[in-house]
């Protein structure tokens, strides 16, 4: 399996470490590709858009032409997991809790409405154990760093987990979005769900 990680900015190598853990656990093999240029999208079986600053990732990806090509690849069925900033980039509708409308470049593919900095600032960043039925029983340690929230889904998009009123994980066909950071834990279940349930051929 060839798995890309969008490597323009943010928590890239933490996902590479998680994929290594999945390889050890499942006794399988995964080729990890750090994607920076459009040509590196060729031959991928799945791609992860990591957390970071969605404005930075969007600005750089737009400049190099990667944003448009990635959008086309996902529309053609490339399985994608967007984490935090990745979820923001995937969303069709984005606004900031305090600043309001943002004019940042997006992929704009998923039928979700995302509110940036939903919980507040870094001071309000938190971790909590949540239940995510889609990845199996047992609590999952969800880490929220200046996290966004999914406030609405429509059409084929369906919520997979909630924390109070906010949706924290959602799926729409080949696209998976989480507002928290599974790569900051030692729990590989969400990465496995992505690779073997969402990206399964």
């Amino acid at each position: 399996m060839r798995v890309g990680i969008l490597a323009l900015q943010g928590g890239v190598y933490e996902h590479a470490y998680m994929l290594k853990q999945v390889v050890d656990k499942r006794e399988t093999s995964i080729d990890v590709v750090f994607v920076k240029r459009p040509s590196q999208l060729r031959g991928l079986d799945a791609i992860i858009i990591p957390g970071g600053e969605s404005t930075t990732i969007g600005v750089v990806a737009e400049h190099t032409g990667l944003l448009g090509e990635l959008r086309e690849a996902i529309e053609d069925g490339l399985p994608v997991m967007g984490v935090c900033a990745g979820a923001i980039l995937l969303a069709k509708s984005v606004r900031d809790r305090r600043v309001g409308e943002t004019k940042q470049p997006l992929l704009g593919l998923m039928n979700i409405e995302v509110v940036r900095n939903y919980y507040g600032r870094q001071r309000e960043s938190f971790e909590i154990d949540v239940e995510i039925p889609a990845v199996g029983k047992g609590p999952f340690r969800a880490v929220f760093i200046r996290a966004p929230a999914i406030t609405k889904t429509w059409g084929e998009a369906e919520p997979l987990a909630r924390l109070d009123e906010a949706i924290i994980m959602a799926r729409q066909g080949n696209m998976l979005a989480t507002t928290f950071h599974p790569e900051l834990t030692s729990d590989t279940r969400i990465h496995e769900y992505f690779l073997y349930e969402v990206a399964r051929k």
Partner: peptide
């Protein structure tokens, strides 16, 4: 996890 996590998402950035 939250304090060490914050700078992780600054990496590759300015």
């Amino acid at each position: 996890r939250v304090k060490y996590g914050f700078p992780v998402f600054q990496k590759g950035g300015v």
